[in-house]
């Protein structure tokens, strides 16, 4: 940037390092310019560093894998972090039993291809064992029951690091969460009492029974994720792309017709060309009309969109302005 006039651009104190750089430039024939990293490669490098750091400092890590695009991304980054070795930890799916078939098919195919271990923590099973109680009514959802099921599984398998695909751009409470996020023995998050996190010096120390949630893609935005998926040709479940489906309208979203959802008065099922921006539990994941059938199309659609992905497709975040903060405090991912 040229410094033209006025006060701006005035270089004040030449610090020690600048002087030193200058000396080197003068005394050595050609300091090679650094290989320039694109923002995606810079984010990738940061994420790989985080994943390696968490694994190096834990006994028993696990990666939460929902089959969604963010967990598919974290899985790819984790594969890269330990290549050419195999993934040194299993993945875990917290399964509400209300899944899109395409997502389960994708999950099983991915696990088989990469030869990694899958643990399924089943909400269905937890209900059967009486550890959690199913909500009732036409708007019943198992979304909240996931928290208890997840915490039980962490406890049972004695996981001390749990990787998640949460991003800070998703939601305001997440914008303030650390990359290494400490959870007490009840799995709770205390937003006012978080460990300072500086430079790339992560503190993963914890006692028995406590664990650390680690979010390697904290600094990625939805757009970054899609651009990277395009560059890397990462495979995704088919529900992300435009397809014909029987749906009905609720709260401004198009919900997929399924055995898990009961129609309310005035709701009727019709066929539409839709896609989904997130692929969670079918009872709280809404779709919208879209003809985007490739990652390229989706990138164009996302850049033109004026609504966040959570606003567009997550009924669970609509309940209160602080809905996510409340669920996170209890131990939600």
């Amino acid at each position: 940037m040229a410094c033209l006039q006025g006060h701006w651009g005035r270089s004040l104190v030449l610090n020690e390092y600048d002087r030193l750089k200058r000396d080197v430039v003068e005394h050595y024939p050609s300091p090679v310019p650094a290989p320039h990293l694109s923002h995606l490669r810079a984010l990738e490098s940061e994420s790989i560093h985080i994943i390696r750091e968490a694994v190096a400092e834990s006994e028993n890590p696990v990666l939460l894998f929902s089959g969604g695009k963010d967990s598919a991304l974290v899985l790819r980054l984790a594969m890269k972090a330990f290549w050419p070795a195999r993934l040194p930890f299993p993945v875990m799916h917290v399964d509400t039993g209300h899944n899109f078939d395409e997502v389960i098919e994708f999950r099983d195919r991915t696990i088989a291809e990469l030869e990694i271990d899958l643990i399924v923590a089943s909400v269905e099973e937890a209900i059967g064992q009486g550890r959690v109680t199913e909500e009732t009514g036409p708007r019943a959802s198992r979304n909240r029951l996931q928290t208890e099921t997840l915490l039980n599984a962490i406890d049972k398998h004695r996981f001390d690091v749990v990787f998640g695909g949460a991003r800070r751009d998703e939601e305001k409470a997440r914008a303030k969460e650390r990359v290494f996020s400490f959870r007490d023995e009840f799995g709770q998050w205390d937003p006012k009492n978080q460990r300072p996190e500086l430079w790339a010096l992560y503190n993963g120390r914890h006692r028995n029974g406590e664990h650390i949630r680690v979010f390697p893609i904290s600094n990625w935005t939805e757009m970054d994720v899609w651009q990277y998926i395009e560059e890397e040709e990462i495979d995704l479940p088919a529900v992300y792309f435009s397809h014909r489906r029987r749906v009905f309208e609720r709260d401004g979203m198009l919900m997929a017709e399924s055995p898990y959802l009961t129609l309310l008065d005035g709701e009727r099922v019709f066929e539409a060309v839709v896609r989904f921006r997130t692929v969670g539990d079918m009872t709280c994941t809404g779709g919208f009309e879209s003809t985007a059938s490739s990652v390229q199309d989706i990138i164009e659609e996302v850049s033109a969109s004026r609504i966040t992905e959570r606003g567009a497709s997550r009924a669970d975040d609509r309940t209160a302005d602080a809905a996510m903060e409340d669920r996170k405090r209890e131990g939600y991912f």
Partner: peptide, 9 residues
């Protein structure tokens, strides 16, 4: 209260 991270491009 805390450091908040925001993103723009």
């Amino acid at each position: 209260i805390d450091v908040a991270y925001r993103y723009f491009a």
